[in-house]
Nucleic acid binder design. Structure first.
Length: 416
RNA sequence: CGGGGUGUGGCGCAGUUGGCUAGCGCGCGGCGUUUGGGACGCUGAGGUCGUAGGUUCGAGUCCUAUCACCCCGACCA
């Protein structure tokens, strides 16, 4: 992509109606546009990051036998009434509307009930289990207050996965596999070291659920960490009884601000009972399905990464999700420079490297500033100087100094 | 939903105890000079001051209502 063709433009100043760092940077750099409080458009640069995050998650979910699908965002009232959750007093984030004929419908804030209702049509015997399905869905939640930029909106993208198992043992195996898959996801996204599997309130069926909490000042949660034993406990469930169960003492814990980037639940057979979600076992008896639910807030993760990996110059994307890998700059109006830069652009692009080529006729300082603001991991400069040396000039986004290297050496850096 | 704050060209802001053609910076168009960390000169376009009503000879400025946005709290599978 050439910068001259990008319809978005960068801004020197942060918008006045955003306090959150993630929103300020993402808007300044042209990744997102605010439509209203808690609702953002993802622009060409932003959607590349979003898709890259989704791809990492997709690969890991597929690796544990997840099957991708996508459900509708419009939901039937009757389905939610089976569990009592159509009621606004029970679920206060509903967006509701009606069809022209008066039929009431809701917009999906979750897909738990609808997915059970859907799978019921296909699940007959134990031979069909387990079933692990997931989707990337835009959730709509009528939050009383949106905040923190893209980290807590009224509309957001979530990966939600659901497991249907024969029994507790089969469920547990998948639950553990998911924890491991989630760890790989966060590692690949560059936040693995700061993300903790955290004990949180479990609801009716189980003692605890597990949240994936990433240390982040802009987060909404407070977690108590035991770094020695690598145990984390959500503030909501820190009490002497629970700490004793986990074998840790209160004075060994460190209090940190975190953002919840994932949450996994064991529903047991509770919901299956309410919704009559059953299968026939090997001796012909009707059994309740054992359910699990596993979420990752895709857009929130993007916000958390923007918050954590940024400096005074702008964003700093991890290579795994950066919208482009190389920011290519030509300096000097001399024809040789332009030809050499175009050639390198074609060469790298032809090899599958995502290059953002700043072909604009603006001063170098502006190009460098934008390279930094956009947070592209690698910056390459072609100038009369580099051509004379038969080299290219390289600097990483986080590096202090640039260096002259060969194109081959650049390609080696891109491998990493 | 309770509390606090903010709405003035595309963006960021100033605008005194009510006063005359509503300013500044950035950005944008034209011309020229520039070209290794967001250049400079000249010039030009662009604003029903969130909206509605009211007070007044006169309202960006005062009053009332309302909408939007931000922050704190509450809420949050």
């Amino acid at each position: 992509m050439k910068v001259s063709q990008l319809f978005t433009k960068t801004k020197k100043e942060a918008p006045a109606d955003e306090q959150a760092k993630n929103a300020q940077l993402l808007i300044r750099a042209g990744f997102v546009h605010k439509e209203m409080a808690g609702a953002y458009d993802y622009l060409p640069l932003g959607i590349k990051v979003l898709e890259n995050i989704k791809q990492v998650v997709r690969e890991e979910m597929n690796s544990i036998s997840g099957q991708e699908l996508i459900m509708t965002g419009i939901q039937r009232k009757e389905i939610w009434e089976t569990t009592g959750r159509w009621d606004d007093k029970v679920v206060d984030v509903w967006f509701k509307s009606a069809l022209k004929d008066g039929t009431e419908v809701g917009f999906g804030w979750s897909h738990e009930e609808p997915i059970v209702e859907m799978v019921k049509k296909y699940l007959e015997s134990y031979k069909d289990l387990p079933i692990n399905i997931y989707q990337f869905q835009t959730k709509l939640r009528n939050e009383l207050r949106a905040k923190s930029g893209i980290m807590r909106g009224r509309e957001f993208v979530m990966k939600d996965m659901y497991s249907c198992s024969i029994d507790e043992a089969q469920h547990e195996a998948f639950y553990q596999a998911t924890i491991e898959a989630y760890k790989r996801v966060y590692d690949r996204l560059g936040i693995g070291d700061d993300t903790y599997v955290t004990f949180a309130s479990g609801g009716a069926f189980t003692q605890f659920s597990h949240e994936f909490q990433t240390i982040c000042e802009a987060g909404e949660d407070v977690v108590y960490l035991h770094r020695g034993k690598n145990i984390a406990v959500n503030e909501e469930v820190v009490d002497d009884e629970n700490l004793a169960k986990l074998g840790i003492k209160r004075d060994e814990l460190e209090k940190v601000k975190t953002a919840e980037v994932g949450n996994i639940f064991n529903f047991g057979t509770q919901k299956s009972k309410e919704m009559d979600f059953t299968f026939v076992n090997d001796i012909g008896e009707k059994q309740l399905v054992h359910l699990g639910s596993y979420g990752i807030g895709i857009t929130r993760v993007m916000g958390v990464i923007a918050e954590k990996f940024s400096d005074e110059k702008g964003l700093v994307w991890p290579a795994s999700i950066a919208p482009y890998h190389v920011y290519l700059v030509n300096i000097g109006v001399d024809d040789n420079v332009v030809v050499a830069t175009e050639k390198l652009y074609e060469d790298l692009s032809g090899q599958g490297v995502e290059v953002l080529y700043d072909d604009r006729d603006v001063r170098p300082g502006e190009k460098f500033a934008d390279a930094d603001l956009l947070g592209i991991p690698h910056r390459v400069v072609i100038s009369p100087k580099t051509i004379e040396a038969g080299m290219i000039e390289y600097k990483s986004r986080t590096g202090e100094e640039s260096e002259l290297i060969t194109i081959e050496e650049l390609k080696q850096k891109l491998q990493k």
